[in-house]
Deep mutational scan, measured.
Amino acid sequence: NQASVVANQLIPINTALTLVMMRSEVVTPVGIPAEDIPRLVSMQVNRAVPLGTTLMPDMVRGYA
């Protein structure tokens, strides 16, 4: 089972991601792999991401 990136807090739209906003968790469906967390830092979300939501590739500008 692969860990995915999950929002550690509410992340408002257009917010640049920081390490404290994300955690890794084994979830279904699988989202962005946890090993990509360092790559996600400073990328912006293109929608509001509620606490506990799995980050999907289409939620992060420039990721996919």
Results as ranks from 00 to 15, higher is better:
10 L>Y: 12
22 M>I: 12
31 G>H: 02
52 G>R: 05
43 M>G: 04
49 V>R: 03
17 L>I: 11
44 Q>D: 07
51 L>A: 12
31 G>Q: 03
61 R>K: 07
38 P>T: 15
46 N>R: 11
36 D>Q: 14
34 A>S: 13
48 A>L: 09
30 V>D: 09
26 V>D: 07
34 A>E: 07
53 T>L: 11
23 R>W: 04
31 G>R: 02
37 I>P: 01
3 A>V: 09
17 L>E: 00
30 V>W: 11
14 N>S: 06
3 A>Q: 10
4 S>A: 03
19 L>S: 09
32 I>E: 01
37 I>F: 04
39 R>C: 03
32 I>K: 00
22 M>R: 00
15 T>V: 06
32 I>G: 01
44 Q>W: 14
56 M>H: 07
2 Q>F: 13
64 A>C: 04
3 A>Y: 15
29 P>K: 06
31 G>C: 03
36 D>G: 11
40 L>W: 02
9 Q>T: 15
52 G>C: 03
29 P>H: 05
59 M>C: 03
26 V>Y: 14
49 V>N: 02
35 E>P: 12
31 G>V: 02
16 A>P: 13
13 I>Q: 14
26 V>H: 10
14 N>H: 09
35 E>I: 14
59 M>V: 12
41 V>S: 04
34 A>T: 12
56 M>T: 14
61 R>P: 12
43 M>I: 04
37 I>Y: 03
40 L>P: 00
50 P>E: 14
51 L>M: 13
53 T>W: 11
49 V>K: 00
20 V>Y: 15
19 L>D: 10
35 E>F: 12
64 A>V: 12
9 Q>R: 14
11 I>L: 09
36 D>W: 05
49 V>S: 02
16 A>H: 15
21 M>T: 03
58 D>I: 06
56 M>E: 07
16 A>T: 08
11 I>R: 01
55 L>C: 02
32 I>H: 00
61 R>G: 08
22 M>P: 00
31 G>W: 02
31 G>K: 01
1 N>A: 15
52 G>Y: 05
59 M>Y: 09
28 T>F: 09
40 L>I: 06
58 D>Y: 10
7 A>R: 00
47 R>D: 10
40 L>R: 00
44 Q>E: 13
27 V>C: 03
34 A>I: 10
13 I>T: 09
17 L>Q: 00
55 L>Y: 00
59 M>T: 08
17 L>K: 00
2 Q>A: 15
13 I>C: 03
10 L>Q: 15
37 I>Q: 05
11 I>Y: 00
34 A>Q: 08
57 P>M: 08
41 V>Q: 06
36 D>Y: 14
59 M>E: 03
5 V>M: 02
40 L>C: 03
37 I>E: 04
3 A>N: 10
7 A>M: 05
41 V>W: 04
53 T>D: 10
56 M>I: 11
39 R>H: 08
63 Y>G: 05
20 V>I: 10
33 P>W: 08
8 N>G: 06
21 M>D: 06
10 L>K: 09
46 N>G: 12
58 D>Q: 09
44 Q>C: 04
23 R>G: 13
12 P>D: 14
34 A>P: 07
5 V>G: 02
20 V>G: 10
32 I>Y: 02
5 V>P: 02
22 M>Q: 00
34 A>F: 08
15 T>H: 08
38 P>M: 09
27 V>K: 11
57 P>I: 10
10 L>E: 12
12 P>K: 13
50 P>F: 07
14 N>K: 05
39 R>K: 15
45 V>H: 00
7 A>G: 04
62 G>V: 05
15 T>Q: 15
11 I>Q: 01
12 P>W: 05
10 L>M: 08
57 P>K: 06
63 Y>C: 03
56 M>F: 09
41 V>T: 09
3 A>G: 14
27 V>A: 08
41 V>C: 04
3 A>C: 03
60 V>A: 01
2 Q>W: 10
9 Q>H: 10
42 S>P: 02
50 P>R: 10
25 E>H: 08
57 P>S: 15
64 A>K: 04
5 V>F: 01
7 A>I: 08
24 S>P: 07
6 V>W: 02
27 V>L: 06
10 L>R: 10
4 S>K: 00
20 V>N: 13
25 E>R: 09
18 T>V: 07
44 Q>I: 14
30 V>Y: 13
43 M>Y: 12
5 V>R: 00
46 N>A: 12
28 T>P: 02
62 G>M: 09
58 D>F: 09
11 I>C: 03
1 N>P: 11
33 P>M: 07
35 E>L: 08
42 S>D: 09
18 T>M: 06
4 S>C: 03
2 Q>V: 15
31 G>Y: 02
20 V>F: 13
12 P>C: 04
15 T>G: 08
61 R>N: 12
31 G>M: 02
23 R>M: 06
2 Q>T: 11
48 A>E: 13
63 Y>R: 03
22 M>G: 01
51 L>P: 10
41 V>M: 07
59 M>F: 14
5 V>A: 07
51 L>S: 14
30 V>G: 11
1 N>G: 12
10 L>N: 11
30 V>T: 11
19 L>N: 07
47 R>F: 07
36 D>N: 07
23 R>Y: 06
17 L>M: 09
59 M>W: 12
33 P>R: 13
55 L>P: 01
23 R>Q: 05
25 E>C: 03
25 E>F: 06
37 I>W: 03
63 Y>S: 04
9 Q>N: 08
61 R>V: 15
11 I>D: 01
62 G>D: 09
26 V>N: 10
17 L>D: 00
41 V>D: 04
42 S>T: 14
39 R>A: 09
27 V>H: 04
54 T>A: 08
61 R>A: 07
58 D>W: 09
10 L>T: 09
8 N>R: 11
57 P>T: 05
58 D>R: 06
63 Y>L: 05
43 M>S: 05
37 I>K: 15
61 R>M: 11
1 N>T: 13
38 P>R: 06
9 Q>C: 04
47 R>P: 02
30 V>L: 10
51 L>W: 10
23 R>N: 15
45 V>E: 01
6 V>S: 03
4 S>Y: 04
36 D>S: 10
41 V>A: 04
16 A>W: 13
49 V>M: 06
55 L>E: 01
62 G>R: 05
40 L>H: 01
35 E>M: 14
34 A>R: 06
7 A>L: 04
40 L>T: 01
59 M>A: 09
8 N>K: 07
64 A>T: 13
40 L>D: 01
48 A>R: 14
60 V>M: 05
2 Q>E: 10
47 R>C: 03
16 A>V: 06
20 V>T: 13
53 T>R: 08
45 V>M: 07
28 T>E: 11
20 V>A: 14
59 M>S: 06
9 Q>L: 08
12 P>M: 11
39 R>G: 08
43 M>R: 08
6 V>N: 02
2 Q>P: 09
45 V>Q: 00
